[in-house]
Structures are given as structure tokens and as C-alpha cells.
């Protein structure tokens, strides 16, 4: 059984508090089409589960197949450093086909980020280490490609459509969290 290492914690980007009973963690890549589909499913699950769900996202950029995945992840982290992680996360998934540097700059402007700081962070690859940390977490947790989901710390096997994930989460909520 593959388990999430390290467990979801305050260093993660979270939608919802850690005290909520259901933890859903996605390892994803902003340029991955399946993650784009999963984003819609996750949003629907968040609406359905309300304050039961704490959702966390870790980066797993598949750099060979997706040339812009890493810089897009860096852009999301840079926005996060300015308090706009989820806003950028959603914009990137909404327009997965436009993830080159000029597009990223446009999204940052749209969110009203400090552009000087945003550009400097991207040029210095300031958040690359954090992304590598996510990749390491994915490797030791048994990520099998993108997206890979963990429900209450245990790798979700099987499809990631709304019903499958909801059923798995409903079941998981009956047991103590593994991590």
C-alpha cells in the first residue's frame, strides 16, 4: 500500500483547514490534459463536500512530455508567495494551452501581482527547490503519473471521475487518517 510522505501539512497549498476529516491530495502538472480534467472533478467535489474536504496540491511536472510544466509550477509558487496561489492555479488550469512565459506574465498582471518580484522570482528559479521537494515526495509516495491522488494519506487506485473519487473518500472518512 502506497502512502503519502510527508503527510499533508502547513507547507502545502491547502483549500480548507487541515482539521477537516477528508484529505485529498493531488500530484499534478499544469500542462497535463488529464490534470485539466481532474481540476473540474476536484472543483465539483469541493462543492459537494463543502467543509468536509481539505484539498492539497503538490507539483509533479512531467518535464519531458510537457515543456512548460515546470515554469508554470514556478509561476504558481511565485503567485503563492504573494498570497495568490489558488487564483494562479485555477488560471493555469483554465488555459493549459497557454503556459509560456509571456502568458504567465499576463496571468500575473491579471491577478495584480507585484510584477517586478514575480519576474525576478521566475528568472532566479526561486521556487525550483520547493518543486523538487514535491517531486521527491511524489517518488517516495508512489506517484504513478499525473494526476495521482491520495485520500487520507493512501494512494487512490482506479479512475478519478467524480463518482469514483467521491465513493473512495466517503469510505475513507469512516477510518482514521493514515497521514
Amino acid at each position: 500500500m502506497s502512502t503519502l510522505k510527508p503527510p499533508l501539512g502547513p507547507r502545502d497549498h491547502l483549500r480548507g483547514e487541515l482539521s477537516r476529516p477528508i484529505h485529498l491530495v493531488e500530484f499534478g502538472d499544469f500542462e497535463c490534459p488529464l490534470c485539466g480534467q481532474a481540476q473540474i472533478v476536484v472543483q465539483a467535489l469541493a462543492r459537494a463536500l463543502g467543509d468536509q474536504l481539505c484539498f492539497g496540491f503538490r507539483n509533479f511536472p512531467v518535464v519531458g512530455a510537457h515543456p512548460n510544466a515546470q515554469i508554470a509550477a514556478e509561476a504558481a509558487e511565485a503567485a503563492g508567495d504573494q498570497g495568490k496561489y489558488w487564483e494562479m492555479h485555477d488560471l493555469l488550469f483554465d488555459d493549459q494551452h497557454a503556459l509560456e512565459v509571456p502568458h504567465l506574465g499576463r496571468y500575473a498582471e491579471q491577478l495584480g501581482l507585484d510584477m517586478h518580484r514575480f519576474v525576478a522570482d521566475l528568472q532566479a528559479h526561486r521556487f525550483l527547490e520547493k518543486i523538487r521537494g514535491d517531486l521527491h515526495s511524489g517518488a517516495i509516495s508512489g506517484v504513478v503519473g499525473t494526476p495521482t491522488f491520495f485520500i487520507n494519506g493512501i494512494r487512490h487506485e482506479g479512475p478519478f471521475d467524480f463518482d469514483s473519487l467521491l465513493a473512495a473518500m466517503t469510505l475513507a472518512a469512516r477510518f482514521p487518517r493514515a497521514g
Partner: peptide
């Protein structure tokens, strides 16, 4: 049908 990932190898 199950991709085992790398966690077992790394452990």
C-alpha cells in the same frame, strides 16, 4: 493493470 510507482524501490 497496476502501476506500482517507485516508493517500494526507494524504500
Amino acid at each position: 493493470g497496476i502501476n506500482p510507482g517507485a516508493d517500494g524501490i526507494l524504500a
